[in-house]
Design a protein around this nucleic acid. Structure first.
Length: 728
DNA sequence: TGAGAGACCCCCGTTACATCA
DNA sequence: GCTGATGTAACGGGGGTCTCT
């Protein structure tokens, strides 16, 4: 650490040490310390043998500062002259900072050693460390305060919204307004108001029906309704979609769905039924209020509906931009959305915003498990600005408009989406509605996951909103300069690089962990097999080409999701589940928080084990993330030389990432109050998906042998067994 | 064995000066 | 050159812990 050589006079050291001892022993010095230091200065200037100094610089100010002279007034003037030299040099501070990182409380011996090397009195080193500890503490408190202030602002807004909502809530008994601590209004007045509202609802329903009828009978594209949507009749993206008249139907369908979604987000009971902190639609009431608006339900299909609200730290403009850009949208919801594409834009909306944008899209919706079939959807997405600060984005399936010859879809989206309300300080309130009809005979294929799916925790609004909130926190942390970070990369740029790498790793993991995988993957095990093994040729530019082998499976464990998350994310317990890391010493080099919950962070580990990390030039990048509905621990080995290149301004894409890891979901059997992931739940069970990935060879033409598949299956099974034993 | 004194350390707040806009 | 804000080195007081008597 102290490799800098200093020719330092022992005489000065002795005097300084004596000075410190006297000071520490409470013996009053005949002169102030600074005056004594000035005496050292005078002594120094008269003693040529002491001219060598810090780093070969004979002008070292601190060194001069430690010198004592012996006369009075003249010294004071001299002292004032040298005040500009009171501060420690950059090199000295840098070296002390290095020590501080490992040891914020150096003992006397260590201080003396530093004193000799740095040319500062031990007492000065002691002061410096004291001040540094205080500064760090103050900074830490400052950061904590900022986080708390943000949290406070969010809670205040949420509270205001709740109060507002409460004002508008209708009492189930008397149909009147509800207020805390007050009884309902005069019943006659309430009944009159109720009748008026009912009439209004009927009227609005009539408008919807008439509207649809008008669409059925009139396909004039220049009608005032469609004109509002800026539709110009041209196909800027080519005619990928459907014949001309279908597009009019789609646009009209989008508009009607928007109306339905808006009403669904604002309605209360009896349309929505509240159970266990979640809301679902009252089916009979729904049919009464929205009769045959979209399309009849397929026989045998089951409705899944849910609604959830959340205040998120993202302004409405960015949120809408994210939702309307297919790449950003699938990245934002990477653990739910896969294979998303925009097929055709039917209307481009306003020039400066997305108001009126209508686009036809397709996407697979999945849970992170190879055992659950993904839901393929073909739908239209429409964005509309309702009034200043209030926007809505709606999706609705187009499957019923497809030619009858095509395969019957296994699920379809009824009007679903979100209402976005602009809030102060860059916040938005999002009310999310998910309403789908699903063929459970084909999509409920695994008994472990059935409860999760039917509880709406897999595909419901709660999961969408939790995922959105988590991702917003992550984005905020990546641009916040006050995020707590430890060691290795303590600068903003380095932190940003690591967070981006972790995000890339997560995207890659999400794309292979579910059942909706890209066609480039070659599945090597039969569908009936517990463990799925697949391979592909890596073609990503900048990374080593070769063959990647992936193995994955899911299992149920009788433990709380949070407990499993803590276990799998803890480097000290890694050898309990990973046979390759037994005997490893894993040291965390960097720790970057990316969320309020302490479980959300990215780490960079140094692992000294050749079995595990092939060579000493590899580090382990790990991303831990948890929200109210799911959590994951994802990790990948990264080459230390490539990392250094990237930290020095190189292209991050040169870092090859082959992520492995775990996705954890609650089993959804029985939910108590609070979030299923962060708080304990009644069921006590969770669903774990394991996915391991490895580059098996650098030859792209390599043929995968059966022995490798068997080895991969055995490795996954062994890992499962180890986790089961550890959790037992 | 417990009490008291002293040494040492740390935290916290303050002061004095340097630096910068 | 003056001024105010901010950063930094040094200092003092209070309190805790440990050792010795």
């Amino acid at each position: 650490m102290f490799d800098l050589q200093l020719e330092h006079s022992d005489k000065f050291d002795l005097q300084l040490q004596q000075q410190e001892v006297q000071h520490q022993n409470g013996i009053d010095s005949p002169q102030p310390i600074q005056q004594q230091q000035q005496q050292f200065l005078d002594f120094s200037t008269n003693n040529t043998s002491s001219s060598s100094d810090w780093g070969g610089n004979s002008q070292n100010p601190n060194f001069r500062n430690n010198i004592v002279s012996s006369n009075g007034e003249q010294d004071l003037n001299q002292e004032q002259k040298n005040m500009s030299a009171v501060r420690h040099s950059r090199d000295q501070i840098r070296e002390m900072k290095k020590v501080f990182k490992h040891c914020p409380h150096p003992n006397q011996e260590e201080r003396e050693k530093m004193s000799r090397v740095l040319g500062i009195a031990p007492i000065q080193i002691k002061f410096w460390f004291q001040n540094k500890r205080n500064q760090d503490k103050i900074m830490q408190e400052h950061r904590q305060n900022n986080l708390l202030r943000q949290e406070n602002a969010r809670l205040r807004i949420e509270n205001e919204m709740r109060n507002e909502k409460l004002k508008n809530t209708i009492c189930l008994h008397c149909k009147g307004p509800v207020s805390i601590g007050k009884m309902c209004f005069n019943q006659n007045k309430i009944r009159i108001e109720n009748a008026r509202l009912k009439a209004e609802i009927e009227k609005l329903s009539g408008v919807s029906r008439n509207h649809i009828n008008a669409v059925e009978s009139d396909y004039d594209i220049t009608s005032s309704m469609i004109g509002e949507l800026y539709y110009d009749g041209n196909d800027p993206f080519g005619s990928l979609l459907t014949p001309y008249f279908d597009k009019q139907k789609i646009v009209e369908l989008a508009m009607v769905s928007m109306e339905e979604l808006t009403r669904l987000t604002l309605a209360g009971a009896p349309l929505w039924i509240s159970t266990n902190e979640s809301e679902s639609l009252n089916e009979s009431e729904y049919i009464r209020v929205f009769p045959n608006v979209i399309s009849p339900k397929h026989t045998g299909f089951i409705s899944e509906s849910s609604r959830e609200s959340m205040i998120i730290f993202m302004n409405h403009v960015n949120l809408i931009k994210t939702l309307m850009n297919v790449n950003q949208w699938s990245a934002m919801f990477s653990d739910i959305v896969s294979k998303a594409v925009t097929i055709e834009v039917l209307s481009h909306g306003g020039l400066e915003n997305y108001n009126g944008l209508v686009q036809v899209m397709s996407a697979d919706f999945q849970v992170p498990s190879p055992l659950v079939r993904a839901r393929e959807n073909y739908f239209v997405r429409y964005c509309k600005k309702h009034q200043e600060g209030i926007w809505a984005v709606v999706d609705v399936s187009l499957d019923h408009l497809r030619p009858s010859s095509t395969t019957m879809p296994r699920s379809q989206r009824r009007p679903s989406g979100c209402l976005i309300q602009e809030l102060p300080y860059g916040y938005s309130k999002v009310t999310w509605v998910e309403h789908v009809e699903v063929d459970h005979t084909t999509l409920l294929s695994n008994r472990f996951y059935n409860s999760l799916i039917t509880s709406s925790l897999a595909f419901g609004a709660k999961r969408w909103v939790a995922s959105l909130g988590r991702q917003c926190e992550r984005l905020t942390c990546s641009i916040d300069t006050n995020v707590p970070t430890r060691d290795y990369c303590d600068n903003f740029q380095g932190r940003k690089i690591l967070l981006n790498l972790a995000q890339r790793m997560k995207l890659c993991f999400s794309s292979i962990v579910g059942s909706s995988i890209e066609s480039c993957w070659n599945v090597l095990t039969p569908d009936s097999h517990d463990v799925r093994v697949m391979s592909k040729t890596n073609t990503e530019p900048g990374t080593p080409s070769g063959v990647i082998l992936n193995g994955g499976t899911s299992l149920w464990l009788p433990v709380l999701p949070k407990r499993l998350f803590d276990f799998l994310g803890n480097q000290n317990s890694r050898s309990e589940w990973n046979i390759l890391s037994i005997g490893s010493i894993i040291k965390e080099m960097t720790h970057i928080r990316h969320g309020h919950d302490l479980g959300n962070y990215v780490s960079l580990f140094q692992v000294n084990n050749k079995n595990y990390m092939q060579n000493n030039n590899m580090l382990l990048l790990q991303d831990k993330s948890i929200d109210r509905t799911s959590s994951h621990v994802i990790f990948a080995p990264v080459d230390i030389n490539s990392m250094n290149l990237v930290f020095n301004g190189g292209d991050p894409n040169i870092i090859a990432l082959f992520p492995s890891g775990f996705a954890i979901l609650p089993d959804g059997v029985q939910l108590s109050n609070g979030g299923p992931m962060l708080n304990s739940i009644g069921s006590g069970g969770c669903l774990l998906t394991i996915s391991f990935q490895i580059l098996v060879g650098l030859n792209p033409a390599l043929k995968i042998e059966n022995g490798w598949v068997e080895a991969a299956v055995n490795f996954i099974k062994n890992t499962c067994e180890r986790i089961k034993v550890a959790m037992a």
